[in-house]
Design a binder for these strands. Structure first.
Lengths: 356, 356
DNA sequence: CTGAAAGCGCTTACAG
DNA sequence: CTGAAAGCGCTTACAG
């Protein structure tokens, strides 16, 4: 019998079992089970010894084994059909890619600060790997995943993703593309509008940071002045923003906005202020989807997030790690595609004379 | 030892295991495993016998046991933070309610016609219970869940849900509420706009059916003419609809629309046709959320779906079954709440005279 | 209060 | 090509 022993495996994987805890605390695994699940009285001393052992070993009970033995998974499934029209093509295409390769992709709700849940999920054996969304520049969940030795890929990037697998939008190239498009239309006063995250759990969310940086750089390269505003992710805020912008930077002839919800309000707000779009001012919505461009009137010119492609590649990146080992890094940046509609146009002669 | 034997349990739960298949096919469970997973060559005769046995017993391999033994769950988790701003409060509140009661709610993507997946999910032991969304009037998934003996609750209702647990919007009372509100404002020509589902996988989706029925009844009670139109779930279709409506029913002074995406287009389309909202025509968006009412200009008066409440109650209904047994039926209908904004107003003297 | 042991339903080296 | 058996990591009646 050359089958590897438990201890050997433990050393490799670093997963402590109830048996390990039991040995260390000098009790039976039954007793450990009782304290873990609080399912029977255990004397305070024994209990304390067990808790210490659990702590020292970083014990996490295996959810699969528990489910098998108890015939209860404690998982409720919300059957989620027709994902497309709710979550966009990212999830749909990722789910499809996973299925094609023999895996099931499941959406796992976690709080934004829920680092513990991450550990639990992996150490508990419930998932073979993890896709992480809405990555912040300094994201504690990433550290947890690294510590847990979990296979994972980011949708987005943290501050230094050089050793990690990720798929992200190329915000830098995208904003550059947007600026160049507007520049070629004759615009010289191009403002940038971002989502406001200060004071929310998403403070330090990377996309606006990267976008703003590159915007400032590229505008400088073109010898242009910069105007950056932020606003909350809702149309009311967008409407207010229109007023603010016209006070702060009345010369503006074009706006790049990366804030889908606010963009609809922005368009309405500009109209209320008496501006015609695009005759008086152009609006370009970045990193959104042209599906919603008709929410506003005129229809928004957009730079569409490559969602479906990102979904597919994210699964690829994750499975490369799971099946190929942790050395298999995959790092991809995808540029948004420009979809010209009715909210952008050449700068008019009137704007040129009146405003400059 | 009075522990119940395997056979006894099997009779109760009706779940066939590999061992059952092996016995029936006169082979070892190892061999069954090989054919189930196609992991080793098995002679055609043996293989055929096993396949027959599997079929006869309705064998589904237990996903938990497989995961435990193979140390692979074949599940990938998409960590999903901040659900609120994507899926609405329904999922958030359901997830929270589940957590409070010691369960984890997971979003399980299935195709709309994916009845097999449903069986797999339950028989495979992966979930203790199921919440079913987007229920159709005749929904094969419901039959599957009944057959599988799975604890489940519907978000919505099928044609005859009298023996099932469900939580649904009370479309009947809601549309009545909307009609009465507009009637009291003096409107007599109230059109109804629904989502178009013919030819889509959601054909036979119950909400528009129920809404239309009660609309016709209640309008008749008030002695009013009815106008019902449908359109696809996107703003472009909504814009087109405005034109169609003004041709089909030029007398219309108020519209109740249950089609959130199209409602934004409808408002824009009416404006393009030269109508002022609400001076010339009122628009009431039903079964949506006031969070998006500012997407349009003027802000939409809405009847808000009680999403958070539904999420909570759906979990209650499901857990009542899981923990209390299948006799525990829970059936709840919740009315949408009216949020008056700027898109509805009294019928004007001009409308009254010009139009009637 | 605690433990020995059977069992959950599979997978998988090993032996034949 | 097939099987006996150990093992995955837990839970849980039963006995003491």
């Amino acid at each position: 019998m050359t089958r590897r022993g438990r201890a050997e495996r433990e050393r490799e994987a670093g997963v402590a079992t109830m048996r390990d805890v039991a040995e260390r605390a000098n009790v039976s695994i039954a007793t450990v089970s009782f304290v873990v699940n609080q399912t029977k009285r255990v004397s305070p001393e024994t209990r304390a010894r067990i808790l210490v052992a659990m702590e020292e070993l970083g014990f996490q009970r295996n959810a699969m084994a528990r489910a098998l033995a108890s015939r209860k998974s404690r998982i409720l499934a919300l059957l989620f059909p027709a994902l497309e029209h709710r979550l966009g093509s990212f999830v749909t295409s990722a789910a499809k890619a996973a299925e094609e390769r023999g895996y099931k992709l499941v959406l796992w709700p976690v709080r934004n600060d829920g680092a513990d849940e991450v550990t639990e999920l992996i150490s508990g054996g419930l998932a073979d790997g993890v896709l992480l969304m809405e990555v912040q520049l300094d994201d504690p969940r990433v550290d947890r995943l690294v510590d847990a030795g979990a296979p994972f890929a980011l949708i987005g990037r943290n501050r230094d993703p050089s050793k990690l697998s990720y798929v992200d939008m190329d915000f830098e190239k995208t904003v550059e593309l947007g600026i160049d498009y507007l520049f070629d239309l004759g615009h010289r006063n191009i403002a940038l509008v971002l989502e406001e995250f200060e004071g929310t759990p998403l403070a330090g969310y990377a996309p606006p940071v990267r976008t703003e940086e590159r915007y400032r750089e590229h505008m400088a390269e073109l010898g242009l002045e910069t105007v950056v505003l932020t606003c909350a992710q809702n149309p009311v805020a967008g409407r207010q923003l229109a007023a603010d912008l016209l006070v702060a930077a009345p010369d503006t002839t074009a706006i790049i906005i990366m804030n889908a919800e606010a963009s609809f309000g922005l368009v309405n707000g500009l109209a209320h202020a008496g501006l015609k779009i695009p005759a008086d001012i152009s609006v370009l919505a970045m990193a959104t989807t042209s599906d919603v461009s008709a929410f506003s009137d005129p229809m928004l010119t957009t730079m569409d997030a490559p969602s479906a492609e990102m979904g597919r590649r994210a699964i690829d990146a994750l499975l490369a790690q799971i099946e190929g080992g942790s050395a298999e890094l995959q790092q991809e940046l995808l540029v948004c595609e420009l979809h010209i509609a009715d909210s952008t146009g050449p700068v008019s002669e009137r704007q040129r004379t009146v405003r400059s």
